[in-house]
Structure formats: C-alpha cells, structure tokens
Design a protein around this nucleic acid. Sequence first.
DNA 1: ATGGTCGCGCAGCGA
Length: 283
Amino acid sequence: MRIATWNVNALTGERIERVLAWLDMARPHVLCLQETKVSDDAFPALDFHAHGYDSVHHGQGRWNGVAILSRVGLDDPVAGFADGGPPDPEARLVTATCGGVRVSSVYVPNGRAVGHEQYHHKLRWLARLRAHVLADVRPEGTGWLPDPDGPGGGLRAVCGDFNVAPEDIDLWDPAAFEGATHVTPEERAALAEVMATGLRDAFREQHPGAPKLFSWWDYRAGAFHKHQGMRIDLVLLSPRLADQARCALIDRNARKGRKPSDHAPVFVDVDLSAVSHGGDARG
DNA sequence: ATGGTCGCGCAGCGA
C-alpha cells in the first residue's frame, strides 16, 4: 500500500489538474490532502472518482480544509476530533478507514510566532491530536490499541502537514531558525507525544540521518532552487505498518513548474502482505 | 539591497 500526503495549498484551478496528474503517475492507494481551501461543495470529488478514487473532504471554505482519497475503499469517515471534546472550528483533521488502515489527514496549526496565542493553540492542538489517535478506535479492528505491541493492535496512519520539523537535519540551516516556530523544544515535544502512542516517522526510518530531504520550500527568494526547505510533512505509521515499510520518497518534481504548491507530496510504500496479524483485533 | 511569493479575493492578512 502506497500511503501519501500532500499539502496542496488550495485545491482550485490548475492545482486540481496537478493533483490529478500526480495521482495518475504515482498511483498511491491513499492520499491525504491538506489546505484544500475550498468548501465541501467545491471539492472536486467527481474528478477524483473518475481517476479511481473515493474521497472524504472536511472543508470550511477559504482556509484550511483536509481530505483523504483512497482506491482501496473508504469507510467510517470522521471530521475533526473524536476525543469527546468540543468541535474544532477549523477544518484540520479528517479520519477514515482505507483498506484496513485507519488513516488521518492532519493540518497542524502554523503557530505564527513563538509565544503568540496561535503558538499555544498549536501546542494544545497537538495534544488533542494525541488524544484523538488514542480515542478513535473503530469497530472493525482498524483503530488503535494503546499498547502497540499488544495483540491485534490496529493499523494506523497519521499523515499530513505537522508544521514541525522533527530534527535539525530536517532544516536547510538550523541557525536560520533560531527563535522561530517549527523547531522549538516545545513543538518537538508535542510531536513526540503524538508519536509516543507508538507511531513512527516512516519516511525518516527509510533515510536515517540523511540531510536535505525537504517537503516544503518558501515561494520567496528562490528557496526551492537553493534547496532551502524543511521537512514538515510526515507519514506516521503504527508499528506493524512501519515494520513493513519498503520505500519512501518525496516527489520534488511536483514542486517544479507552473503553479506548484509550496509543498511536495511524500509517500511511503508498505508491504501489507507482510504485515503481521497479531491475533484478535477486537473480536 | 535586510526584501523576495504565493493564496484568497479585491485589501491585506496568513503562510
């Protein structure tokens, strides 16, 4: 199963054509999208269906908006947090079961500036994401068990734009980020708490220690051509999936040419035939 | 030279 994520920075006009062309080329089984910036009415579900993909979109109009596309089935969609708390007024999270894997597409708040109200909101939002991962257990055994080594632990993928660079090797120049968001110990700790549920950074595990593997580049100042970027788009996988990851790629080509998003798609290939069946997944 | 560019939507803010 090829599991992909892409912050498309608006799913309108020519960007739709770029996403459709990428689907035809890469043929991911699942693609998580962020920053669609369209209402549910304007989401091009029919275009995706014509290319073989079911979809669920959680949009709010001009800002945010997340979606999941799947060509291996798409069941039990949930918009937003499933932690029992109040609904998030922003459309930053959607979850569905695709081919036996419980998948979430996430768009973590940017944070704006260290110490800003939005920065604290970002930290709280990541804490809620952890709670969501633990709480969103589906009846078909595709959810999650708190003990990742327990029998039948659910298959889980949490993919998206985390707006956090996990390590300094995920930055083009760590010195350029002093005092900035995306790299603070607090943000990294909040991401680590999400991952402490058992989720693993499957892309990094395929490229241990490798620098300059970025998923986002500023539109300004020719940052892309100068290889000045960050890796903030992550594919987090539960242990039984991560153990069977075979290949992971960031498609820089999708950042080139006419009207690109400022993010490139990231994908991880998992050999589902090798995934262990750890016993009873809940009956 | 201390900026730069996008997106949305039509001013200026957010990323």
